[in-house]
Design a protein around this nucleic acid. Structure first.
Lengths: 148, 148
DNA sequence: GACAAATACATTGATATCAATATTATTTTA
DNA sequence: TAAAATAATATTGATATCAATGTATTTGTC
């Protein structure tokens, strides 16, 4: 006898249409592609842009708080810094006050790339904002913050 | 003379607080972790759950439409199928009517895993829904669909 | 001050993601 | 029908992501 468990197709449709995780992942991929494409002339991805922007502080940042801000694992941050270091856009130096810690800074060329990216971000972001019901993302941001 | 371009810190704060791409990526990572953790006892990730659920159709699916539904690149789908095939949860067969195409199907054991995942999805999803202002994600889903 | 606990980060291994490109098969056009 | 255009998928190379684990350093406690 065949005992194959069948999931009702209605369940599939329910998950497809309601799963917030799927909806957020889909939107994340679509937005990432859009920003990646806009930033490509600078050799930056959306994630690298967000990371570098978060390093634009009066004082060098430590890794932990940056990972928390971006909601990425600390090991992901370690990996993400590598290509930025290699291109000379970011420096990762030991903190003399705590030799476990690292000080993350933008280099002058990193700042130059980031400065060039800002108008691209502004234009792309304005386009995205416009697509949203209501014409701006305030409501969406509030909802997303409740999930992060 | 030093000609270092400085991005105003206010710009950094503006991007941090308003960038929809960053907000969506952050929420996507947080939700992915939550669903991954809940599904871990079954050996499934959130993405594998979404993919396998999208294969639960009366007729085997082709790759293109599945990639479009999930808003992933077709090459990502090719790669994502590999571990599922290896575990015997999914079959990838050539389509006799069009030998370029592939037919994607769940195996009986794939259906069994997926069936076991459904109650976990329901519970996790209900928890997430509750966290949202208004107590459900209808509004958020509408906003996200406008981006995907 | 020694030692246990906690902290900060790195490494490894697996999967996810996409751009660029290649391969194979079908469809259209001349 | 042969050649060109199109379509469906695979491969490669680079980065992204996280769990599990390891290492070095600091902190807290006695």
């Amino acid at each position: 006898m065949s005992n194959v468990i069948e999931i009702p197709f209605a369940t599939t449709l329910l998950v497809r249409d309601t799963c917030l995780c799927l909806h957020v992942q889909r939107a994340a991929r679509a937005l990432a592609r859009r920003f990646d494409e806009a930033l490509r002339p600078l050799g930056l991805t959306n994630g690298q842009f967000s990371l570098m922007m978060s390093l634009n502080r009066p004082e060098p940042a430590a890794m932990g708080p940056v990972a928390t801000l971006l909601a990425i694992d600390q090991t992901t941050l370690t990996a993400a810094l590598k290509p930025l270091e290699r291109r000379g856009w970011v420096t990762v130096l030991p903190n003399p006050r705590d030799r476990r810690a690292r000080l993350l800074s933008l280099t002058p060329s990193g700042k130059a790339v980031l400065a060039a990216a800002v108008p691209i971000w502004e234009m792309t972001h304005a386009e995205v904002d416009q697509r949203l019901p209501g014409g701006n993302g305030d409501r969406l941001r509030r909802d997303l913050l409740a999930l992060a």
